[in-house]
Design a protein around this nucleic acid. Sequence first.
RNA 1: GGUGGGGUGGCCGAGUGGCCGAAGGCGCUCCCCUGCUAAGGGAGUAACGGGUUUAUAGCCUGUUCGAGGGUUCGAAUCCCUCCUCCACCGCCA
Length: 428
Amino acid sequence: MLDPKFLRNDIQETANKLATRGFVLDVELMNQLEEQRKTLQVTTETLQSERNSRSKEIGLASKRGEDITSLRLEMGKLGEELDAAKEQFTALAEQLKNISSAIPNLPHESVPLGQGEAGNIEISTWGSRKEFDFEVKDHVDLGEALGGLDFKSAVKISGSRFIVMQGQIAKLHRSLAQYMLNLHTNEHGYTEMYVPLLVNADSLFGTTQLPKFGDDLFNTKPATEEGIGMSLIPSAEVPLTNMSRDMIYDESELPIKITAHTPCFRSEAGSYGRDTRGLIRQHQFDKVELVQIVHPEKSFEALEEITAHAEQVLKNLQLPYRKVVLCTGDMGFSATKTYDLEVWVPAQNSYREISSCSNVGDFQARRLQARFRPTGVKKPELVHTLNGSGLAVGRTLVAVLENYQLADGRIEIPTVLQPYMGGLTHIG
RNA sequence: GGUGGGGUGGCCGAGUGGCCGAAGGCGCUCCCCUGCUAAGGGAGUAACGGGUUUAUAGCCUGUUCGAGGGUUCGAAUCCCUCCUCCACCGCCA
C-alpha cells in the first residue's frame, strides 16, 4: 500500500513513477473519487458529530427529569440521514481501498528504467565456469541415472511439477538447507524460526499476495462457515514478515533478522509450458528465507547486506553466479528495489534465478501496521521490511548436480557439504 | 469436541447504558529535590483517519475497548455469530 498522501497530493508524479513499471494509474478517476470521498466523509462526520452532541443533551435532559419524547423523534430523522450517508461513504471507501490495494510500490530512484527482463542490468559476476571436456548432462538425466530424482513417482502420487527424491540426493538436498540455515544463523546474525505453512487471509494481505495474486496460491477448503480457508505459503516471507504485524517495536530492537527453512507452494498459474522439465519450476519446493525488519533510514543498506548473505552461500558452494539489479518493469509488486542472483546452469548454458532480494520499504509495513517508536519521540513510525532467498534449495540442488558432475555421471560433493553427508566426497 | 472464565491504552489492570477515550499502577518524557547512586515530589503521556493549514504545529471533528452484526436518541457496558487465550474433562502424535 502506498502512502495515501502520494495519491492525493502528488498524484501526477506518482502516476509517472508507476508508469516506469508499466502500471497505468487513472489519475482522473482517482481525483474524482478522492473529491467525492472528501465531501462524503465531511458530511457523514458532521452528522455523526451532531448525533453525538444531541444524544448527550438527551442524556442530560432525562437526568433532569424532563420529557424527551420529542427530542427522540427528531433524532430518528437524523439517524436515517446518517445511515444513508454512511452507506454511501463505506461503499466509496471500499472502492478506493480496492483500487489502492492493487497499486504496486514505487521504484527507488536508483532502479534502472526498463520494460522486461531485458532491461535488467548485470552488476557483477562471480566464480569461474568449469570447462567440461565431455558433454554435460542436465540435472534430470544425472539425477535419474543415479536413482535420486524420481519424476515418475511424483506424477503418480501428485501430478506434474512435483518431485520424489531418494537416497543420497534426498540427503544432499537436506544438507543444502541445513548448511544455509547454519550459515545464516551462525555467521550472519539471523534467528532461526519454525513457522506455520498454512496462513490466513490477513497475513496474505499483509505481504501483498492478496488481493491481486490469489491465483498463484494453493488454498485449503473453507475452514469456517464464512468460507475463509487458509492458504499454503508461497514463501516463508509470509509468516516471517507477518511476525511484525500490529507491532510497535522499540527502536533498540531493530534490526530484526529472522530466517526459516520451509517448503513453498505455488500454483504457477500462467506459466504453462515454461520450465516443464526438471526441478526449476515446481509446485512445491524448499527455500531458506531471510527477512529483516529495519529502521527506515537503514533499508537500502540492509538490502546490500541481505544480498551479500545470499551471495555468501553461492560463494561457499563455489557456484558461479551473477548479480542483477531488476529494472522498473521487471520488479515484483511490492519492491522498491530488487537484486536477483542467478546461478550458472551448465546444461542450459545460462544463468538462472536462484535468489531474489528486495527492499520493500514501508509498503508492506503500512498494511501490517508494523511500526517502531523512535527513541525520545512520541509518534510511532512505519518500519521497512526486506526479504531475500538465501537460497532456493531445489534450484541450488540443480546447480550443484550440474556444476559438480563428472564424466562418468557421478557428482562431486562441495567441500562445505561433506560434513553434512557423513564425509562422503561423491555421489554415485 | 464439552464445560466454565477471560480478551480494555506501550505494558498491567479497574470499569454492567450517558458525567468513560476510559480509574489506578508500571514504563516513558520534562521539571524539582538530592555530595554520587538509590529513593522522593510535581506535571505530561493511546492509536488511526478527515477538515483547515506552508506545517508530521495549532484548532475543529470522526473512528477505535478481540472481529463482525444487532438493540438504543445514546454501547467498553445489553443481545447474536465468529476468532482467540486460560482452566478442567475427553481425544490424540
